[in-house]
C-alpha cells in the first residue's frame, strides 16, 4: 500500500497541479519573476509538501523557511493564492483550482524567493516589552492566579510570531514603522496577565504615533492568523484600556487571598 493511499479505500487520488512561485535571487535577478512547475500531489498533502517535492525533485535552489511542518513553529508563512497562511497548515484539497500560487509575505524586504527579512518584524515585537514585569520578591512556590485570570489572556498566548497577521495588514504595508498586530497581540498577552506590573509602560509605548492607533480595524489580521487568535479583538481591548485607563482583569477570588 502506498503511503499516499486513502486509509479507507487504499486508492491513490493524485491531483495534477501547477505550482507558481515568485522567484527572486539577488545574485542573479534584477526583478522578481514567476516560475511554474508541474507536479502531482495528493489531496491530503500540505502546500509545504508540494513545495518541498518541487524543490527536491526539480530545483533545489528554491528558497523557503520551514521547520516543524505542523503549524507550531511559524517558519513558513507565505502568501498562498493571495492569502497569508502557513504552507504547512493548508492542504491541497482546500486549495481551489489547479494552480497554487505562492509568493513571499508582503511588507518586509525580500531576501530570496519566499524568504523575507524578519528583522523589522522582530524589532517591533521586542519594542513592546514582551516579557513578564514583576519586581516583587518571588514567593518560594508559584504566584497564585485564578483560572478566570489565566483565561483572560489565553488567546494571545497562542501567538507563534509567524508574521501572517502583520504582513496582511494594509496600514503596515503602507508604513513599516507601524508596530503591527503581532506586537500588539504580544503586548496584550502581558497587559492582561494578573501577575504583570508593566501594563502602564506598554500602553505608553503603544500610544506612540507609530503605535496602536494606526490600526484601521480591517480584520485582515484575524482572518490571516493560522492560530485562530482573535487579533482584532485583542487590539480593541488594548485600545479600550488606553481610552478608559482601565485594564480589565478578573478580580482575585477570595480563595487566593
Amino acid at each position: 500500500m502506498s503511503d499516499l493511499a486513502d486509509p479507507n479505500t487504499g486508492q491513490i487520488r493524485w491531483r495534477d497541479l501547477t505550482l507558481r512561485i515568485k522567484r527572486y535571487d539577488p545574485e542573479k535577478d534584477r526583478e522578481p519573476h514567476w516560475q511554474e512547475f508541474k507536479i502531482q500531489a495528493h489531496p491530503m498533502d500540505r502546500v509545504l509538501d508540494v513545495l518541498m517535492k518541487v524543490k527536491w525533485e526539480q530545483d533545489d535552489s528554491i528558497a523557503l523557511r520551514k521547520s516543524c511542518a505542523h503549524g507550531i513553529c511559524g517558519s513558513d508563512a507565505m502568501r498562498i493564492n493571495g492569502q497569508n497562511n502557513l504552507a504547512c497548515k493548508l492542504l491541497v484539497q482546500n486549495v481551489k483550482g489547479k494552480t497554487i500560487t505562492v509568493e513571499p509575505i508582503l511588507g518586509l524586504p525580500v531576501i530570496k524567493d519566499l524568504i523575507v527579512d524578519m528583522k523589522p518584524f522582530f524589532d517591533h515585537y521586542k519594542a513592546v516589552m514582551p516579557f513578564l514585569v514583576n519586581d516583587d520578591p518571588a514567593p518560594t512556590t508559584e504566584r497564585l492566579q485564578t483560572p478566570e485570570q489565566r483565561a483572560r489572556f489565553d488567546d494571545t498566548t497562542k501567538c507563534i510570531l509567524c508574521a501572517c497577521c502583520t504582513t496582511a495588514c494594509p496600514p503596515f504595508w503602507g508604513n513599516r514603522e507601524y508596530v503591527g498586530p503581532a506586537a500588539i497581540v504580544n503586548a496584550h498577552r502581558f497587559i492582561f496577565d494578573s501577575r504583570d506590573q508593566g501594563a502602564g509602560e506598554r500602553l505608553d509605548i503603544l500610544n506612540d504615533s507609530e503605535g496602536i492607533w494606526r490600526c484601521r480595524t480591517v480584520f485582515n489580521c484575524t482572518s490571516a492568523c493560522p492560530r485562530g487568535i482573535q487579533v482584532t479583538q485583542a487590539i480593541s481591548e488594548v485600545k479600550r484600556a488606553l481610552i478608559t485607563g482601565v485594564v480589565d482583569i478578573p478580580e482575585e477570588a477570595e480563595v487566593l487571598s
Partner: peptide, 14 residues
C-alpha cells in the same frame, strides 16, 4: 512560573 509561564491553574490558583 516566576518568569511568566502561563500554566493552567487549579481552582485555588496553583
Amino acid at each position: 512560573e516566576h518568569m511568566g509561564l502561563p500554566f493552567d491553574r487549579t481552582p485555588d490558583g496553583r
